[in-house]
Amino acid sequence: MTKNSKQALASIIAVACLCLAIVLAPVPHQAQDVASGQATANVLTGLSVTSTQALNFGDVLQGVAKSVPNNDAANSGIFVVTGEPSAGISVYIALPPYLATATGDDRMNIVFGVTDCSIDSTGNSNPSTFGDGWPNVDPYALPNNLVIGSAAPSQTAVFLGGEVVPSVDQTAGPYTGEIVITVAYNGT
């Protein structure tokens, strides 16, 4: 092989290597990378509130007020709230100012005192055997630190008493009124 041939071959190899370098070399300005992260959340138990017993005054005489205490197992109003154990809740009770006949032609006053409500967070739902929580509180302004009971069955019971005040000429017959309880998590 002549010297010129060797030089030519060397040049060809050099050019080939350069081309190879261009082809093989990483091209960062066109590179791309993709990664996937996750968003995660754990949704806790939903709230549920059930009226298990109506506030029942039974038979009432005209002109004679009648009270039901909040620890009356047979007659006090009972609401049971279930949800995430130990979670903070806000509770609001909308109380009626009167009871009415089915036709609405007569009304009977009902009043709730500032100690007519008890809230038990031990899992007990019997008002006569109050466990622990917030006894004898104002149903119009319930404490703001209420929680769902931490022990099974993870519930909080609301016991409600009250007083009806029939007039002396109260129309005879059954009277009813709605007690609406609203419960929501407060995020604590």
Binding site: I22, A25, A31, Q38, T40, V43
Partner: peptide, 28 residues
């Protein structure tokens, strides 16, 4: 030269250091 061209540049890389973690969430 080929070797230099090959090692002197690098592609980018994405690593997930942390997910978006909301933890416990109350309904509503």
């Amino acid at each position: 030269l080929v070797l230099v061209l090959t090692v002197s540049v690098s592609g980018q890389n994405v690593t997930v250091n942390n997910d978006l973690v909301f933890g416990s969430v109350f309904p509503g």
